[in-house]
């Protein structure tokens, strides 16, 4: 946003910088639709917080960097380690947050606890947040759009097998489905089953098989995910 389009109808010192800001619409870009209600609200609240010196613009930039540094690749490393190191796996299942923080340096900046849910031949875990979009962001980054959308949230608690089937995942009838609804301060990471035929794989090769969706529990890890070198 440039100064000439910056309209203030509240009274305050005008001493903040109007440098480039990735959150602002570029007024020169005519193809960009005008901001919606919530975007305007977000800009207004953010500018007020900055002008009242409750937060600094650098803090928002820093938090975006924090989020950008969190991707499913982190979770994949944790899963691969658990597959090759039974003692680490035991620590991870006992306290997911502590194991991630101490042994990978993956900090839980949002002060949530992490419960790692192990998928086995008898139990298949899947994670949802029916109320909103609770998600283990420290280890997986931002959730996919479908995870936040109402159809997934409403349906997976009611007909999980049908939803999993739409992801291409058929769970045998003798396996127990556990739908884990994340509503509060707990976050869940699924520890998927290690596929057969990976006995000779290195930890790094194993990690390359582990995708975001396998750690939400909507698909199983498959050798078809293997990246060709």
């Amino acid at each position: 946003m440039t100064t000439d389009t910056h309209h203030h109808d509240h009274d305050h010192d005008h001493d903040h910088q109007h440098g480039p800001n990735p959150h602002h619409q570029d007024p020169k870009n005519v193809d960009t639709p005008p901001p919606g209600y919530y975007e305007i609200m977000e800009i207004a609240v953010r500018e007020l917080l900055i002008e009242k010196k409750l937060i600094g613009p650098g803090e928002i930039r820093r938090q975006i960097e924090v989020l950008d540094s969190r991707t499913p690749a982190l979770g994949a490393k944790v899963v691969a380690r658990a597959w090759v190191d039974p003692e680490f796996k035991a620590r991870l299942l006992a306290n997911g947050r502590l194991a991630c923080e101490r042994e990978f340096g993956i900090s839980f900046y949002d002060d949530t606890q992490l419960i790692v849910l192990e998928n086995t031949d008898k139990i298949h875990n899947v994670v949802v947040c029916t109320l909103c979009s609770c998600y283990p962001r420290p280890v997986l980054g931002l959730p996919p759009d479908w995870y936040k959308a109402k159809p997934y949230r409403a349906r997976v608690v009611k007909e999980p097998r049908a939803v999993l089937s739409e992801f291409g995942t058929e769970i045998p009838a003798e396996v127990e489905i556990r739908v884990n609804d994340s509503t509060a301060m707990l976050r869940y990471l699924v520890l998927p089953k290690r596929p057969v035929g990976t006995e000779d794989f290195s930890e790094e090769q194993l990690a390359s098989l582990v995708t975001r969706d396998t750690m939400i529990g909507v698909v199983n890890v498959s050798l078809a995910n293997k990246n060709t070198p």
Binding site: P160, A173, E176, I177, V179, N180, D181, T183, A184, L186
Partner: peptide, 10 residues
């Protein structure tokens, strides 16, 4: 679904 399917919530 099968009777063992469960929901767990905090």
């Amino acid at each position: 679904g099968p009777p063992q399917d469960r929901l767990i919530i905090e």
